[in-house]
Design a protein around this nucleic acid. Structure first.
Lengths: 245, 245
DNA sequence: CAATTTTCATTTGTCTGACATTTATTGTTT
DNA sequence: AAACAATAAATGTCAGACAAATGAAAATTG
């Protein structure tokens, strides 16, 4: 592990990269202990604060954890599914908002991916997941439900659908598309008629998932896609009319 | 922006969280300048090294960039698609390898998602993307190609397919599944017969994409799914026989 | 001898203060 | 007016210190 003195990057960034590479390459095993901060500062020939900055960078990426005390130190961390999942959603959301992805694009991606899950979900869904879907549908019919809560419930419904596929890789990738769309969905105002329509489609999806008929789920999802797209375009149009740039 | 003195977490972690929240919430705009390190250390009532550790955490997450000099400082950074994309792949790969996702699960997810893209790609692919697919197919027929290069080309082919859908959100989410599978694919030894079979299926996919016939692309992808699964299971079996645990 | 307590060494967490480096601005000189 | 030099502000780096946590070894005690 050596660093390039010619590089103009920060020392802490270079050191972080060197250590990161040796973790990612599999050179270091999970729970293996890194040299202590003092040892690292000797090895890289920098001061301890610089080493610490490098380690904090790695900690921010969940690549290491640190522990105080005699047998403490920095340890290679097993990347937990839950953390990666949460991070993925944050990043996806940021990416959508900062780069101004339009509603159509996000919506299209979301439903395309969900339709990929539906057949698997129809095969494998547990009674539990089905019950969750039913419960969320019921929640969506509650009078006086705010638009935001309606959206929350919508996401919960679709997450149950996706999780029904019983494939963590799918759930992970889908989460980025489904959850990241929530801010965009929140710009829609749902009338009672809109909600009835959506609840109807959700019910058809749940029915199809219950009876293991992938085709019905797919057609209902297709209809939901175009309906959501429609609602989104209306919302965008209303927004544009109100605040023209 | 205040921090909780009761929390037992590191100060730098708390401070990073506080700043991160105000960036993610949209409280701060892109390219807006954060207070200087000295100002932050006063605001949070900690020392400058502690503030710096917090800032390095944020820098590691690509949330800020720093600039030296008189008008320098830390600025909120626009999360670039390319960076997020690269990070997403790294994380997905790590997640797969560290959490030992089995070949079947990863493979199923990958092809389910690709099949979701195929109809869109059949509609929208550019001549360029089609040419890329053809070129990669040609590369896959080259004699003497290493297994690793074959896998590389395979990924490039499928990336072109996915990009053909012309939906960055899809491309982003797909990348996590397609590229992260490469280490698993690399464990397969491809015989000439295997390669012929795969090239044949790739050709059928490219033909379908060229003639805008989504159905044919779907059936070819379905066949490729089961064939890949088969190859994977063989490879895993061979591996298990050689090095029994 | 066994169990408990104390001491101790190690390691991360934090602070203070300093100097180096970069860079836009301001002032000076030609 | 243009070129150059001084200045100030900000990040980058360093050195050294102390605090706090923590496991292990040593000492004490029943």
């Amino acid at each position: 592990m050596k660093i390039d003195p010619k590089s103009k990057a920060d020392l802490s960034a270079q050191i972080a990269k060197a250590i990161r590479d040796s973790i990612i390459s599999g050179d270091m095993d999970v729970d293996e202990r890194l040299p202590s901060e003092s040892e690292l500062s000797e090895q890289f020939d920098v001061s301890r604060p610089t080493v610490r900055e490098a380690l904090k960078r790695l900690a921010a990426q969940n690549l290491i954890r640190t522990q105080r005390g005699a047998t403490g130190g920095a340890f290679v961390r097993r990347l937990s599914y839950e953390e990666a999942y949460a991070n993925h959603i944050t990043t996806s959301t940021l990416l959508l908002s900062m780069n101004a992805v339009d509603f159509e694009t996000a919506c299209e991606a979301r439903f395309a991916l969900e339709r990929a899950c539906a057949p698997l979900s129809a095969q494998r869904r547990t009674p539990d997941q089905l019950a969750t879907m039913r419960a969320e549908i019921h929640r969506q019919t509650q009078p006086g439900l705010s638009d935001e809560s309606f959206c929350d419930s919508d996401v919960a419904f679709h997450r149950a659908l996706v999780d029904g596929a019983d494939n963590p890789v799918l759930s992970y990738q889908l989460a980025g598309a489904v959850e990241a769309m929530q801010p965009l969905m929140n710009m829609i105002t749902f009338t009672q008629r809109n909600r009835d329509m959506i609840v109807g489609l959700h019910t058809r999806i749940a029915d199809a998932i219950e009876t293991h008929t992938a085709e019905l789920a797919d057609t209902a999802l297709a209809e939901l896609t175009s309906y959501t797209l429609e609602l989104g375009q209306q919302a965008m149009a209303a927004r544009a009319a109100k605040a023209p740039d």
